[in-house]
Simulated assay, not measured.
Amino acid sequence: MAKNTFRTPPPEENSNLNPNLFQSSWKTFGIFNRRHPIFQYIASLFIKFVIYFISITLAWVLVLKFVPIWVTPTMIDRKVTALFNGRDSEIHSDWEPYENISKEAALAVVASEDQLFPQHFGFDFNAMWGAFRYNLKGKKIKGASTISQQVAKNVFLWQGRSYVRKVLEVYFTFLIEIVWGKQRILEVYLNVAEMGKMTFGVEAASLRYYGHSAKSITRTEAARIAAVLPSPNRFSITNPSKYVQRRTSFITRQMRGLGGKAYIADL
């Protein structure tokens, strides 16, 4: 009777992943690339674009770390829309340094919009996940943008929803967190956020609706401004609805619960 012989196959026969396959594919790609220089040209253009984009945007962010931001894409959009529709197109905006703004105003927007602002690095992933699950239900879209993300969008980008804008928002949020730091981000937010019809920044809102500077704004006044931030063109500071009144009281309680102005003292 013939004796059965068992032969162990070589490794390349036992494995679905042949290591030589990758080497061969890379060589094939190299030959193809040499025969088709257009791909080299496209790759070179892409690399140059990335380098130029990073260099220009980094320089842009560095400059805006030190100079007042008088105009944003959102302001331009509001003005153009008002002109197109035949409405009053005057923009109310008045830049004030962080030290000239009451810390009650700074605390109010943190308590209202982003209570983890002093701790996170630009993104609140728990809030983002909660908003994602909420939006899967098909109801009204709920956002979860931090103050840093809102500043990145308002200063560097356009309004609207798209994947391109969202990716750029993440990029600029990352940059300003590194280059600007928390206090500068909050300073910019307090000066460029839309806080009423054609009204941008807490100084302009305080002068227009309360008749005095944001340096002397009270806790209740600051909370009232923060209460309209979700929809500043819909809600009124001077003629608050019951919703705005309830939200003002809620924000005031949150400000106390966070420990008052000491919560943002070390930004």
Score class of each variant (00 low, 15 high):
residue 7 R to F: 14
residue 9 P to V: 11
residue 11 P to L: 07
residue 13 E to K: 15
residue 13 E to Y: 03
residue 13 E to R: 15
residue 16 N to V: 07
residue 23 Q to W: 10
residue 24 S to P: 01
residue 27 K to A: 09
residue 28 T to Y: 11
residue 35 R to S: 08
residue 35 R to E: 13
residue 36 H to P: 04
residue 37 P to R: 05
residue 39 F to R: 06
residue 39 F to I: 07
residue 41 Y to A: 02
residue 49 F to H: 02
residue 50 V to G: 00
residue 51 I to G: 05
residue 51 I to C: 07
residue 55 S to H: 05
residue 57 T to G: 07
residue 58 L to P: 01
residue 58 L to R: 10
residue 59 A to Y: 13
residue 60 W to K: 00
residue 64 L to R: 10
residue 64 L to Y: 13
residue 71 V to F: 07
residue 72 T to E: 11
residue 77 D to T: 08
residue 86 G to Q: 06
residue 89 S to F: 06
residue 90 E to W: 03
residue 92 H to S: 11
residue 92 H to V: 02
residue 95 W to E: 14
residue 96 E to F: 08
residue 98 Y to D: 13
residue 99 E to P: 03
residue 100 N to L: 06
residue 101 I to L: 03
residue 102 S to A: 15
residue 103 K to D: 14
residue 105 A to K: 02
residue 107 L to T: 10
residue 107 L to Q: 05
residue 108 A to Y: 00
residue 112 S to E: 02
residue 112 S to G: 13
residue 118 P to E: 02
residue 123 F to G: 13
residue 123 F to S: 13
residue 125 F to N: 12
residue 125 F to I: 06
residue 129 W to G: 00
residue 130 G to W: 01
residue 131 A to W: 02
residue 132 F to I: 03
residue 132 F to M: 06
residue 135 N to M: 07
residue 139 K to N: 09
residue 140 K to M: 05
residue 151 V to A: 08
residue 153 K to H: 05
residue 153 K to A: 00
residue 156 F to C: 08
residue 157 L to A: 09
residue 159 Q to E: 15
residue 161 R to Y: 13
residue 164 V to E: 10
residue 172 F to G: 08
residue 172 F to E: 15
residue 176 I to V: 09
residue 177 E to N: 11
residue 179 V to R: 10
residue 181 G to E: 00
residue 186 L to Q: 08
residue 186 L to A: 02
residue 188 V to K: 12
residue 188 V to M: 09
residue 189 Y to F: 09
residue 191 N to A: 11
residue 196 G to S: 07
residue 197 K to Y: 09
residue 198 M to T: 01
residue 198 M to E: 04
residue 200 F to H: 08
residue 201 G to V: 01
residue 202 V to S: 00
residue 202 V to N: 00
residue 206 S to Q: 06
residue 209 Y to R: 02
residue 218 T to C: 00
residue 219 R to M: 02
residue 222 A to V: 11
residue 225 I to V: 13
residue 226 A to D: 11
residue 226 A to P: 10
residue 231 S to N: 11
residue 231 S to V: 01
residue 232 P to R: 03
residue 232 P to I: 04
residue 234 R to N: 10
residue 236 S to N: 11
residue 239 N to P: 04
residue 241 S to G: 01
residue 245 Q to N: 12
residue 245 Q to C: 04
residue 248 T to I: 04
residue 253 R to W: 03
residue 255 M to D: 01
residue 257 G to V: 03
residue 263 Y to H: 12
residue 264 I to D: 09
residue 264 I to N: 03
residue 265 A to F: 04
